[in-house]
Amino acid sequence: MRYLICLFTSVLLFTFQVNSYEFVLEKLPSINKLGDFKASDLCQVTENTKLYIQEVTSDKFAVHPGTVFNNKISIQNVEQTLAFICTTYREDVRAKRQSRLHDIAFVKENFNFFRWLPDTQTAQLIANKSTNEVKSRLLNSIPKDKIFLTKYYTKLLDASTVKTTKYNQALYALPTDEVGLSLEQAENQKQQLIRYRYTRQDIMAGALSTNTAVKPLIWLSEEALHDVLLQGTGVVNVGGKVRYFNVHRNNGIAYDYALGKREQARYWYFIEVPSIMGYGQKQEDKIALKSQVTFAGNVKQLGLGKLFMVSYDRNNENISRIGVLADQGGAFDDNLFQLDMLVDSYKGWSDYHQANKHLPDYAKAWLILLK
């Protein structure tokens, strides 16, 4: 096994470069303090992600070593990197010592670090098309040596089991005309299926209100529906009980990065789930997530399960943290300038901002792979 790892290491000592972005090997990455994450949670998400990679090999969209890396790394190297996280964590628990995943010397000794220099050209092209001034400013301001580090959260919502004046927007389940169909089968029959017929605006205006083939799971306020469609997951208080809802399948309309959330035509149908879930081609295979150790990003090009370290200044102290690419979203199509970090669950913007105002918009980032 050690021989195989050495072989992998030997092919990793180079720069990945395509167009205006790069992943550049840094032998001495700047790490001052490893923090802001729990080793136990990182282990859990890496293990869940590794299991998906090993069991859902048919998912060619996500289960690959990364199309941007020019076949210079293997899926086995990705799996070994993920496995090493839990091996280390569990050895430390058994030895009753502090996790070595927070030990700078240990991390530097065991991983190769590839500095991510972002695709600012694409970011600026999107910024020039955007109608959102804040988004345009943030995209135009991405430094050449830092990625755009956004934060996402699961929405803490209140809802009703019946329609009311306040809770007047349905969170719809997948229409019954699609039950039992795979994604491929549904795509081949899209002209006949309800899911593909309507935009978000159509549905919110009542296009499905009398259609018995579409079941409301719960009822939300209009603002809450926009939020959960954007975030992808709702942590919902329904009559005093906490329930979880996750995106299932959408109406086939692409997310438009240049538009605000209310202008998006993409609409998601939801499903009730046991916890916060991330990437998965099928609902039953989705990866269970933990906050602070999960990144959403460009799974299609980077490949599921990549381990990233990001560094930033917080209260005059430089912090580095590790997380795994285990989620995605429409905003990441052709996007090699951004990671989105799952932070926690909040009622709204003010709660989120108060808890995360110390986190920056941009951060140094490295792809890390086991030596």
Rank of each mutant, 00 (worst) to 15 (best):
G303M: 04
D256F: 10
H64Q: 02
V228Q: 02
D119Y: 05
N112W: 07
T57E: 07
T199V: 06
E263T: 00
K108G: 11
D344P: 04
W349K: 09
Q231D: 03
F16N: 00
F8V: 01
E47Y: 08
A365H: 02
N188A: 15
Q328F: 11
L101S: 03
D256T: 15
E223I: 09
M309T: 13
D361S: 09
C43P: 01
S275V: 10
Q201N: 15
W349L: 09
I142L: 12
E47A: 13
G252V: 13
K286S: 15
K60Y: 00
N188V: 08
F14I: 14
R2D: 12
I319L: 05
L51M: 06
L325T: 08
F84C: 07
N140W: 04
L25V: 06
D119G: 05
T120R: 14
S130E: 03
V324P: 07
G239H: 05
A288D: 08
Q192C: 03
H102I: 07
A213E: 06
Y244T: 01
Q201C: 13
D256Y: 10
Y152F: 15
W219D: 04
G260K: 14
N356W: 00
R94K: 14
F113V: 09
F332A: 06
L139R: 12
H226Y: 09
V238I: 10
K96H: 15
L230V: 00
S320Q: 10
E26T: 01
V56S: 00
N128I: 12
R262A: 15
V93F: 08
K146D: 05
L181A: 07
T131E: 10
S141C: 11
K33H: 02
A288R: 11
I85S: 04
T212P: 07
L181F: 05
E222S: 10
T15I: 01
Y352V: 03
L229A: 07
V310N: 06
F113R: 06
A159M: 01
Y267T: 08
K261G: 13
M204C: 01
V343G: 09
F23S: 05
V324Q: 08
Q283L: 14
L13V: 01
D361Y: 07
L13N: 01
S130L: 04
S130Y: 02
E178D: 13
W219T: 04
K357E: 03
R97N: 11
M309R: 10
E109K: 15
Q192W: 06
L208H: 03
N32S: 14
N32F: 12
G278H: 08
N251E: 09
V293G: 08
V238P: 01
D333G: 04
L369M: 12
S136I: 05
V63S: 06
K163N: 08
S182E: 01
L171T: 06
Y172R: 09
T15L: 01
L171N: 02
R262G: 13
Y198Q: 04
S209N: 05
L225I: 05
Q191T: 14
K286F: 12
N112T: 10
F337G: 02
L367H: 01
K215R: 02
E284I: 15
D177C: 08
A258G: 11
A288C: 09
I73C: 13
P216C: 04
Y312S: 09
F245W: 07
K166G: 02
W268P: 08
Q169T: 07
L183K: 13
